[in-house]
Amino acid sequence: MSNAFTDLLAEKGTLLADGATGTNLFNMGLMSGEPPEFWNTDEPAKIRTLYKGAVDAGSDLFLTNSFGANASRLKLHNAAKRAHELSRVAAEIGREIADTAGRKVIVAGSVGPTGEIMEPVGTLSHSVAVEMFHETADGLKAGGADIGWLETISAAEEYAAAAEGFALAGLPWVGTMSFDTAGRTMMGLTSEGMVDMVEGLDNAPLAYGANCGTGASDLLRTVLGFAGKGSTRPIVAKGNAGIPKYVDGHIHYDGTPELMAQYAVMARNCGASIIGGCCGTMPNHLSAMREALDTTSKGSAPELAEIVAALGDFSSASDGTDGEGPVRAPRKGRRRG
C-alpha cells in the first residue's frame, strides 16, 4: 500500500530519521519527572524547536513528542483522559513543521510502551492494551501524522497489541524494540525472534527494527541479526549516541558527531534503510550522519570486529541468538521505563 513513508523510502533508498526527544527537551529546561507530552500544549514553541532541529539537520522524518501519551503513563500525572488530546497536538505541531520544510518530510507519531507488564506475567490485559494504543494512534492520525512509530518495546505481546491498535485507527506504522539485555529485549526476545513475530502479524509494520538499548555497537549487531533472517521488510536502526555516563548529576552520552556518522554508514551497510539516533543524539550528530550518508557509497556488511574497532566494544559477548543470553527477564520487580 502506497503512503508518504513508503513513497519517500522508494524514492531515496535510505531515510535519515531524527535523534533524541528527551535529551533535547531536558536541554531546553524540561525537569526530571515532568511529562514531556505536557509541553505540547504548555510549551509549543519548544516542541516546534525540537522538530525543526531535526528537519534543519537533514532528517527525512521526525518523531512526535508523544512517547508517553497513553492512558497508563499519563494516569501517573492525573492526566489519563488527555492521551488523545496530547497525541493529536503533538502531531499537529509536527504537521506544521513538515509542511513548511520546503521538501518532503514524514511526521511519525511516536508511541511508547504502556509502562505495564502484560498478562500472563503482569496484569495488563490484551484488550485494554489494544484500546490504549488505539486511542493514542487515533489522536496522532487526527493531528496529521503520516505514520505511527512504535518504539522501545520489550514484549512481543505488547508489540502485537499495538499492531491491533494501529489497525483500529487506520494508521500505517513502523515498530521498533529495544534489545538491551545481552542482545535480547528485557522480556527475552532475540533479533531473529522479532523478525518471525513481525512477519506473523495480521497488521504488520511497514518497517521494523531496533532503537535505544545500550551502545551503537550492540544495536548494529542486532541489525545484522535482522538482516540475516532474509526478510525484505525495511529495517530501522536508531541507536544511542554512545554510552551513557553520569557526570555532575546528569546523564551524558559520549558519542561524538564523528562516531555517529560512522555508525550511520555502518548501519546502512548492515542492512538498515531507515537510520537515526536515540538517546543523546542532537542536531549536530544528525548533520554529521546526513553528510556521511550522502557522501559515502553503500558497502558490504561489516564483520563484528570491524564494528567494535569503529564504535567500541559490545556490552555482552552474546547477541542472544546463540542461546547464551537470558531466556526471559525475571517475572517480578521489573518495569519498562
Rank of each mutant, 00 (worst) to 15 (best):
M282I: 04
N211F: 10
A227L: 06
P35N: 06
G115Y: 05
E116K: 09
H252A: 15
E11W: 09
A129H: 06
S287C: 09
G19T: 08
N284A: 07
L30I: 02
G230N: 00
L76N: 09
D42Y: 10
C212Q: 01
A69R: 01
G225R: 04
K12Q: 12
F26P: 10
V223W: 13
G68F: 00
N24M: 08
A57D: 14
F226G: 14
S59C: 00
T41C: 04
H84I: 14
A83V: 00
T6I: 10
R290M: 03
G276H: 07
F133Q: 05
G19E: 01
S32G: 10
L293T: 08
G102I: 03
L25A: 15
L168W: 01
M197A: 13
D180L: 05
N65G: 13
D180A: 15
L16T: 05
S178W: 08
R73Y: 03
Y253S: 00
Y51S: 09
Y253E: 08
S32H: 09
G102E: 05
D248C: 03
G22T: 03
M197H: 14
P113T: 08
V111L: 06
G22E: 09
F133C: 05
F179N: 12
D202W: 00
L150Y: 03
T176E: 07
A310G: 08
F226W: 13
E37A: 12
R331A: 15
V105T: 11
